[in-house]
Write a protein that binds this DNA or RNA. Structure first.
Lengths: 201, 201
DNA sequence: TAGATTGTTAATCGATTAACAATC
DNA sequence: TAGATTGTTAATCGATTAACAATC
């Protein structure tokens, strides 16, 4: 959607947003102050913020409240987006119970699993459905976001099924590189690999 | 440790490793074949692999087995490293039960929490200790890796305590930018932010 | 006014890609 | 030999940083 912004910049926007919200203050804040607090260059901060609708005032900086709004707007925190979880194992469980997605306008609406003992239950207030109803439910919900919390072996076939249902953004926790058709975006989070990378840094 | 390799390259090494292992084959593989499978440039693949001890044979490529070993060596999959989890909530739980860390030579040895009802229990075969024993246990274990699964509000103070115990690598799941002293490395995984980034891509 | 800050244009730096010699 | 592939050197591309004019 926002094809103009470098991914590196986009990735920093939530960092700014978290920091600014954590200040819990009012008034002005300068790019220099943000840069010092986050340990980065101030021009980079201004460049990043310039992708949003934020406008600084010369001599004083940005109005904190406006800046937060601009970041939230840009990141789509104000549009309601539905996401589904596939795989109601430990990780899926943890995500279903986590409240932080609402900050970004994302609602995890339900989960899908193959395990009979889980189907029909509720986790974190969200229903767990059978994968057999996946297509039906996703189309009914008109959800385009999915979080993959399934074992690596089945991740590709689950991803294929999801894209068939109209899902075009997949957050994948399985340690496999998914092949998806044109127009579908995948973002990977491999926790074990992250820990290994950290450990060899 | 490996200060010579660009972080971008380092981050791709686990991707190669996962792919090569998934082939479950023997014999030779060329950088071109890897590149095609993963959708990247073949020169980039060779450059990345060159940071490891891997050596290709002209005309045929790399010996699959050797290449896997070289990647594993470079990523330290063969040295045993101990990691602790702080925060035995849903997420900490999920990680304790996940087996994938052993592929990288990382062993999650225990968790710490403040919740009396969790302390003394075992999750995924790993004991949950009181944070009061944190220093004692971590020093006894000589662990230098920690995974932070605590709420954002306490993340900074928990990180401070950890570095006091000799932890110098922290994988942080809390949506806050941690300030740590020189010599300590932090890697952040903000799942909600990742989903928001994906959704605005 | 003097000083602080933004936003933009130019310079630098680093990572990716292209070109190609070396090898078997 | 001809052809395929590596590894390296040079060129390109993109992101970060530096410089600076504009503004209040």
């Amino acid at each position: 959607m926002k094809s103009d912004i470098p991914v590196t910049s986009l990735q920093r926007l939530p960092v700014y947003l978290n920091y600014l919200k954590s200040l819990d203050a009012e008034g002005y804040i300068s790019s220099g102050a943000i840069a010092r607090a986050l340990g980065m260059g101030e021009v980079l901060v201004r460049k990043d913020l310039a992708y949003t609708s934020a406008q600084g005032r010369t001599r004083v900086g940005y109005v904190l409240e406006e800046l937060i709004s601009a970041l939230e707007d840009y990141l789509g925190c104000n549009d309601k987006k539905k996401a589904v979880i596939v795989g109601a194992g430990e990780l899926g469980n943890a995500l279903l119970s986590y409240g932080g997605f609402s900050n970004y306008g994302i609602e995890l609406v339900c989960a899908f699993d193959t395990d009979e003992t889980k189907i029909g239950k509720t986790i974190g207030g969200k229903p767990v459905y059978s994968v057999e109803n996946e297509k039906e439910e996703i189309e009914k919900l008109d959800a385009h976001l999915a979080v993959l919390c399934v074992p690596a072996k089945v991740a590709q076939s689950v991803a294929d099924a999801l894209t068939e249902c109209g899902v075009n953004k997949i957050l994948n926790f399985a340690p496999v590189l998914l092949r998806v058709k044109e127009g579908v975006t995948v973002r990977n989070i491999d926790v074990a690999a992250n820990l290994a990378i950290l450990s060899s840094m």
